[in-house]
Nucleic acid binder design. Structure first.
Lengths: 249, 249
DNA sequence: ATATCTCTTATTTGTCCAACAAATAGGAAT
DNA sequence: ATTCCTATTTGTTGGACAAATAAGAGATAT
């Protein structure tokens, strides 16, 4: 009873000023949560809030935007999932920037099978990063890099499972890409990790990793050491295309 | 009163079987929401649910995992933000895969200024995609591609604002990357859009776009038409490095 | 009689409120 | 300076109602 009257009263007061709280000219036909997310985003940008600054408490957000606490919580949950705020009890919501880490989570849902198209696309991309950019790679690589790469490669020999081995395989190629010293490229590589690892494991046993993969890596490292451009491109391309025959569709 | 007794009763029953509901061996010290997300993820994978299949209703999830409805809603909100479910009133939550689209949202928070490091990284990446991959580009490009690129470039002349012009500039380069026919590369490019557009706008007016940028694009298109590898690489590299001098730090 | 359309109904999601538990920052007391 | 207490804030739950809508019931035309 009292609840009902309260509601109609509150909603009536809202009706007198519909869409007034919309910062941009959008239609406001979205859900209350989406609206609120938009509000908080403008609150961050127009308030000039930087990483480390705090957002108002849940209660203050309720009052400021005239909405319920669960709505505020769902909006904050979205922002948390985006990796732009970190909520700590009592101290409130602090602005962060962990969007890259969230992107990793995003693609870690690994239920779907890798299609032939995805395989071709991903390996084509990797070919671009790891084969075509050999000039940059040869220019920047140091003996320490090669030593580390060789160290990672030897771990392949002791891997106990194919899953374990594919993780090491991925680390080898990640370390190679890291030589280029470009953070954006490295981030992209890490984001793609789940798919790449899945491709690496395709039709491979732990023995395959310890024999075929290991020696291919070793040969690739030799071409890098000798700065043999032609051999590097050939070996790496062959290495990346190895899994191709398993898509006989 | 009744609320309190109910609660303690329920929680007591839970205490008898702590962590029993944990599918994996993780500590269960995470929040109820995070636990529930994990539960639903295993529900999807172990249930073999595919895109298009439906999840149980909120109420069923409450009963099955013995949790409150708002907790279920926050968990579903996370999954919605990830782009793995789409919830429609009455019909329930349907499994989708719009993670790539969500990744775009993720990086569309554009409050932070582009640092010199980010500029160098991003442009280095673009250089890899647009300069180093000229062989692939020249191999696949068609007269229709070039016609479309030229059409996009002419739109630069009629742009009314710098924001508008930078969007067209981005479309030009996106179209160029699309020629390679690799979806993964194109997706990465689109994800980076906010940063790239911000870089494009750096210290440029709408006049700059209509004069300098326009003619640089036109020259690049000519080198592609003539399959002039050397000229293409030089022109494109120069084009990408243009904004460099604005970082005099 | 069948098909199609409209209306009703029951179910489900969206939002809000109230209550309590858990964590903790900040102050009070020692 | 340390310890304890308290008030505030977030985390979780239950309940209520509004809004949307899928499914079924009923009406109408062919």
């Amino acid at each position: 009873m009292t609840d009902t009257s309260d509601r109609s009263l509150r909603e009536a007061s809202l009706e007198t000023d519909p869409e007034a709280r919309e910062p941009s000219g959008r239609t406001s036909r979205a859900s209350a949560v989406d609206d609120l997310v938009e509000h908080i985003r403008t609150l961050i940008s127009e308030g000039g809030l930087k990483v480390g600054d705090s957002l108002p408490t849940e209660k203050e957000l309720c009052e400021r935007f005239n909405t319920g606490r669960n709505t505020v919580r769902e909006a904050m949950r979205i922002l948390k999932t985006y990796g732009v705020v970190k909520v700590r009890p009592k101290v409130g919501a602090v602005i962060i920037d962990e969007r890259m880490a969230r992107a990793f989570d995003l693609f870690s849902f690994n239920t779907l099978e890798v299609s032939r198209e995805t395989f071709v696309d991903i390996q084509g991309f990797r070919s671009l990063l790891e084969v075509a950019s050999f000039e940059l790679l040869f220019d920047k690589v140091t003996p320490e890099d090669i030593a580390e790469l060789r160290q990672i490669n030897t771990e392949l020999l002791n891997a106990e499972t194919a899953v374990n081995a594919s993780e090491i395989d991925f680390r080898f190629h990640t370390r190679l890409v890291a030589v280029m010293g470009n953070k954006a490229i490295l981030d992209v590589y890490k984001i793609m990790k789940p798919v790449i690892v899945k491709i690496m494991m395709k039709a491979k046993t732990v023995q395959t990793f310890a024999t075929v993969t290991y020696s291919e890596h070793a040969e690739i490292l030799e071409t890098i050491e000798k700065r043999d451009r032609t051999a590097y491109q050939y070996k790496m391309k062959t290495h990346l295309d190895a899994g191709f025959r398993h898509f006989s569709d």
